[in-house]
Simulated assay, not measured.
Amino acid sequence: MTINLGAEISRRRREQKLTQEDLAELSDLSVNFISRLERTKDQNISIQKLDSIARALNTTTPDIINNAYRSKPVKSSEVSLDSTPVFVKKVANELRKLPKDKAERMCKAFIILLKEVN
C-alpha cells in the first residue's frame, strides 16, 4: 500500500477553503513546495515540514499520515472542530514569528483596540 500525503494535504486544504498560497504562508513554506507536494505521488518531505503543514491545517502529523493510508478519507470537519477564518490564522502565524514579549504586547494592544471598537 502506498501513501499519498500530498493528496491528503490537498483535500484538507480545500476543505478549509485555503489556497496553496494561504497554506504556504501559514506553514512558512514556499508555494512551489506546496504545489509540488500536492501534485506528485513521490514525496520527499521532512518531518519538520510536515509538522508545519499539520499545524497550519489545525491537525497533527500522525493524523495526516493515518488519514493518507485510509481507503475512505475522514473529513477534517470530523476530526477538528476548528473553523477559524483564514485571516485569524494569518495573524496568529505572524504573532508566532515574534519574540514572546513582543507578541504578548501586540495581543494586549489588539484586545484593547477590539474593546474600543465594540
Rank of each mutant, 00 (worst) to 15 (best):
T2S: 12
N4Y: 09
L5G: 03
G6N: 00
G6H: 03
E8G: 01
R13D: 05
R13F: 04
R14V: 12
T19H: 00
Q20H: 01
Q20D: 04
E21F: 05
D22K: 01
D22I: 03
D22L: 01
A24C: 03
L26G: 00
L26D: 00
D28Y: 08
I34H: 02
S35A: 11
R36V: 06
L37D: 07
L37E: 08
L37V: 13
E38H: 06
T40P: 00
Q43T: 12
Q43R: 12
Q43C: 10
Q43F: 10
I47T: 15
K49G: 09
A54H: 01
A56S: 08
N58S: 10
T59A: 06
P62N: 05
P62G: 07
I64M: 06
I64C: 04
N66F: 14
N66T: 13
N67F: 06
S76D: 14
S77Y: 13
L81A: 14
L81N: 12
T84S: 05
V86G: 00
K90I: 02
N93V: 03
E94V: 02
L95H: 04
L95C: 04
K97R: 09
K100P: 05
D101I: 10
A103E: 00
E104C: 08
M106N: 07
C107Q: 11
K108G: 12
F110D: 07
L113Q: 11
L113F: 08
N118F: 09
